[in-house]
């Protein structure tokens, strides 16, 4: 689809939000305690913020919830039954004001959940999602989108991208059919875009991801991994705040005869992730698990899923209790 650019005035944004909220769930960023940013369902427009740098958690949960029930069952010894989940009950959601790194992450997740066999749970949630992205006019030292082929105004994954203008209004880039439908439905709120000046942040490029990928091919046995992961304590914080980490567990939970099977977030950084029943563990120590995290995102995924497994949001580095700064490490890896 050809991209069209429009202008939406600041005062029209609220009308657009209210109109969309009439028959859809809105998911938008709000300020939380301790100077943190979080996304919330159906907040009042007055709560929604437009000048945040990064939310603590990513928005992957919209398409890949912390817990997704996959089947329900009744266990009756010789007459057990299995019931499907009704995916038609998944509501239409408008993700409002997500930054380009987060929206680009949906493409990465798609490359995991929809390669070869399609995962209907993910696919249906994505299908029911309308993404109104918000380009960044602020960033911090942890942001590195420009190092992974993105930018503060990347359009990847957005249906409409709002780009802040210096005059306080927004340029609206209409990028997909879904976006176009919104433009058509609420055409009165959009004006022609007349080359007004945009207000974007500058994110310094820290490394060349293609070079990193190239270097990683020969880096498996490098002492780098042990040296640089001694301080890693093996928690799942990086994986759980990451917008592209998609490893999951499958578990059963039953009360009496009735129960469900669900999948829930997991992390390759946990020691038991790969533990065999026999007691053998292919990734026995933390350095091997840290190596897996980096190689998976920057070597295996580009080769296997044709997508880089990182969008440069910097959440893992912000969340890490021991300063495992991924951009810093990638920069170092570029020259080993």
């Amino acid at each position: 689809m050809e991209t069209t650019s429009k202008t939406i005035r600041k005062h029209s944004l609220e009308k657009l939000y209210a109109s969309l909220a009439e028959n859809r769930k809105m998911y938008a960023p709000v300020a939380e305690a301790d100077n943190r940013i979080g996304y919330k369902y159906n907040p009042d427009f007055s709560e929604v913020i437009f000048d945040h740098i990064q939310s603590t958690l990513s928005v992957k949960n919209v398409v890949f919830p912390r817990v997704e029930n996959v089947i329900f069952y009744t266990n009756n010894k010789n007459d057990s039954t299995v019931t499907d989940v009704d995916l038609n009950k998944i509501p239409e959601v408008v993700l409002w004001g997500a930054h380009p790194c987060d929206t680009a992450a949906y493409d990465v997740l798609r490359s995991i959940f929809c390669w070869d066999t399609k995962d209907e749970f993910f696919a249906k949630r994505l299908e029911k999602l309308v993404v109104i992205g918000l380009a960044c006019h602020k960033s911090d030292a942890h942001c590195f989108c420009t190092s992974v082929g993105l930018s503060p105004d990347s359009t990847k994954g957005s249906d409409i991208l709002l780009v802040p203008l210096t005059n306080g209004d927004y340029k609206a880039e209409i990028l997909t059919e879904k976006g176009n439908r919104i433009l058509t439905d609420f055409s009165g709120l959009f004006e022609p875009y007349q080359d007004e000046e945009t207000k974007l942040t500058h994110v310094e490029q820290q490394f060349d991801h293609k070079q990193v990928t190239q270097h990683l091919k020969e880096a498996f046995e490098n002492p780098f991994w042990v040296e640089n992961s001694l301080r890693c304590i093996g928690c799942g914080a990086c994986a759980y705040v990451c917008p592209t980490c998609a490893c999951f567990d499958i578990q059963d939970e039953a009360k009496g005869k009735n129960g469900k099977r669900y999948r829930s977030w997991d992390s390759c950084g946990f020691g038991l992730f790969t533990l065999h029943t026999s007691g053998h563990n292919p990734r026995e120590v933390q350095s091997q698990r840290w190596r897996q995290r980096i190689l998976h995102k920057f070597s295996y995924m580009p080769e296997r899923n044709a997508s880089l497994g990182c969008v440069g949001c910097g959440r893992c580095s912000r969340a890490c209790p021991v300063d495992m700064n991924i951009a810093e490490q990638l920069q170092a890896l570029q020259s080993i």
Binding site: D116, D119, A246, F248, D266, C268, H296
Partner: peptide, 10 residues
């Protein structure tokens, strides 16, 4: 090939 557990290299 989605849950990530049996990933060995690519």
């Amino acid at each position: 090939g989605k849950c990530g557990r049996c990933n060995v290299g690519k």
